[in-house]
Design a protein around this nucleic acid. Sequence first.
RNA 1: GCUCUGGUAGCAUAGUGGUUAUUGCACGUCAUUGGUAUGCGGGUUUGCUACAAUGAUGACGAGGUCGCGAGUUCAAAUCCCGCCCAGAGCUCCA
Length: 579
Amino acid sequence: MEKNEEYMEKFWHTTAHVFANALTETFPTTKLAIGPAIEHGFYYDFDLDKNLDAKDLKVLEEKMREVLKRKESMIQKSVSVSEALELFKNNPYKTELINDLVEEGEKTISTYTNGKFIDMCKGPHLESTKEIGAIKLLKISAAYWKGNEKNKQLQRVYGISFKTQKELEEWIELRKKAEENSNIKLGKELDLYMINDMVGRGLPIWCPNGAMLRMQLQDLLVKEQLKQEYSFIITPHIGRTELFKTSGHLANYKEMMYAPIQIDEDEYYLKPMNCPFHITYYAKDPRSYRDLPLRLSEMGTVYRYEKSGELSGLLRVRGFTQDDAHIFCTPEQVKEEFKKVFDLVTKIMGILKLKDFRVRVGTRDPNSSKYVGEEKMWEKATQEIIEVLKEKGINFVVNPGDAAFYGPKADIIVKDALGREWQTGTIQLDYNLPERFNLEYAGSDGQKHRPVMIHRAPFGSFERFTGIIIEHFGGNFPLWLSPEQVRIIPISEKFMEYAKQVKTKLLEAEIRVKLDERNETLGYKIRDAQKNKTPYALIIGAKEVENKTISLRDRKGKQETIGLEEFLDKIVKEIKEKN
RNA sequence: GCUCUGGUAGCAUAGUGGUUAUUGCACGUCAUUGGUAUGCGGGUUUGCUACAAUGAUGACGAGGUCGCGAGUUCAAAUCCCGCCCAGAGCUCCA
């Protein structure tokens, strides 16, 4: 049933009409806005003076079933614009939509009728509502009319439907499974991170397991960046007002920054970005074209104000560490540097089995004044990004108006193991900041020139990226990434001595290993290792001690007996290959 | 910030006005045990096979001003108000 997208769209769209029908019958004062089918199910936005709650949803579900029992046909009818305006004269939203359509050149308006209920809609729909056998209303939320925060807030109800009750139940079951993978749930279960009220919202503490995971990701980045001749620097978390004034952050980014801190006679701001500090380093010495490109990297912690409702587990926080770098180069080097960044991204995502990524190019919104710098520079920068993407054969879309205030950007969007898409990293070209800070280098002609900056963060932030990685792997991290790689389980205390020898040997080989010394049953300890998603459990008993072997059990339950040395070779190789 | 739903021990839960707030896991002590999680069934033997459900040896112990603060009441985890926090969604975004 899910396979035929076109059919499901019709199916859910028709269900949306059934919902609207039930809604208007229950609450006749409802003013309907729009109600499309979405990837899984449908929603309907409407204006109603009463805020609906969960009880109302139950009532509405019942009403929908009544509507469905009538088994009405969906009848399409095109009417003239004036007829449509008359038909929907009491509904300001439909009226606005009709006027929009007229502006786009439409001469007639399409409507659909089932029974007594009529809605403006271009379709297509099912022939009859009788095909819908099971419905469920999922949640209520607020949504802005036409998606604009400035517009009136409407109520939105999400729902889904299927042909049979069985399919509905299967879908609910599937949804539950996806929830099992949530970074919030797994973060708790695997003791990866915590968020504490007293510390503050949006400010996670990384627990040892999570910290290890993050350090491994960082290690991967550091090593790959060294291969591309990056340098690393470390900068402070706060800086004086003057710095952020010069950078333009106070003029363009202030609503994302926290209130200043008074220190002696001066005002300091928590840094929302690392760029001003990196630029300051660049400006320290006179630069020559021979120094460029200068690739400056920092795992830089920044603080940004996020509206309270936007915070979510590790995915959206208020203090986070970016895998930041700024590449200072000549205008001629921009394309080459851009290519190298994409090579880095491709390589790293490949290692993390996130091969299916695409790029969204954010360009300037011609009608907005929030940007700094000349239009010509923007055009050049945008052009260069697109050229590189085309040359590399990377999938991309252009999203006008999505640029940073200092330059166009390319956001990286990855698809995880469950097929969900996440925005992770970002690459931004910047012709503006070098200008504002009056950066220069001496060219081969002996003249002063202006360098170009590329801001880039392949992961975006360790917080968000780790959150995505948790969900992507469902907690079953590859061996090299696992906080605990091996758990040693002796069958009884009698074998503890050999177990300790094995532990020492593994520790010497830089393997993250724990020895379970608790006085619990073998079954309990095995179960515990499996629950913790530890890649390998080593069971050690009389046979193993005698033969200098270990009994190996992976987290899926597969077992084998192999020699200790053989195991060491195997695991070291596996870690090195990052499989 | 807005909408809805929630907040009971480390985690997960029961409890809608009436003694000392329920249960499981986790934690501690002791005991028991030990070969690949547990339960039940089957045969035959000490290792298999089939089915089913789910985070599991026993006893004891410890753990909670029921998110916070006012209010209603003889009596509040329970009803009312305010605030805080979380989740989902809108908007925004690394």
